[in-house]
Computed example of a mutant assay.
Amino acid sequence: MAQGANSAAVKKLQQTLKYCYNQNIAIDSDFGPATKTALRNAQRSEGITADGVYGTQTRNTLIWWTGTTTYNCNSIELPVRLA
């Protein structure tokens, strides 16, 4: 998944970037330049390739937002694949 995508999966990624990685981005389901930059920042913080593209390595490494509060970030694989 990369810039240009628009889906519920992008929304979940944006929630994760905003709430678990403190990125100041809109949650609008649109993978635009701000989401790409936020993803690169999260990838850097996790020590993985910071290419701004959501793939297997990113999915398996990010700490995921799993709830309705900022305190629900877990290092689990989501039940729905986002890639």
Score class of each variant (00 low, 15 high):
L78E: 05
K12L: 11
W64D: 02
Q14P: 08
K18F: 07
T70N: 12
G55S: 08
N24Q: 13
N24V: 10
L13D: 08
L39T: 00
N6S: 15
T56F: 09
D28I: 09
E77S: 15
R44F: 02
D30S: 15
S75H: 15
F31H: 01
M1V: 14
T49P: 00
F31M: 03
F31E: 04
Q14S: 02
D28N: 12
L13R: 04
R40S: 14
K11W: 09
M1H: 12
A2K: 14
T70H: 12
E46I: 05
T56P: 15
C20K: 07
R40F: 04
K11R: 15
V80S: 12
G47N: 05
T37H: 08
I25T: 07
A5N: 13
D30M: 10
T58K: 01
R59F: 07
R40P: 00
G4R: 05
V80D: 13
T70P: 11
Y54G: 02
L62D: 00
P33L: 14
L82P: 02
R59N: 10
C73H: 01
T68S: 13
T56R: 11
Q3C: 15
R59T: 09
T61M: 02
R81C: 12
I63V: 15
Y21L: 02
Q43I: 03
C73Q: 04
Y54E: 04
K36Y: 04
S29L: 10
Q57R: 12
W65D: 06
Y71T: 15
A34D: 11
T35N: 00
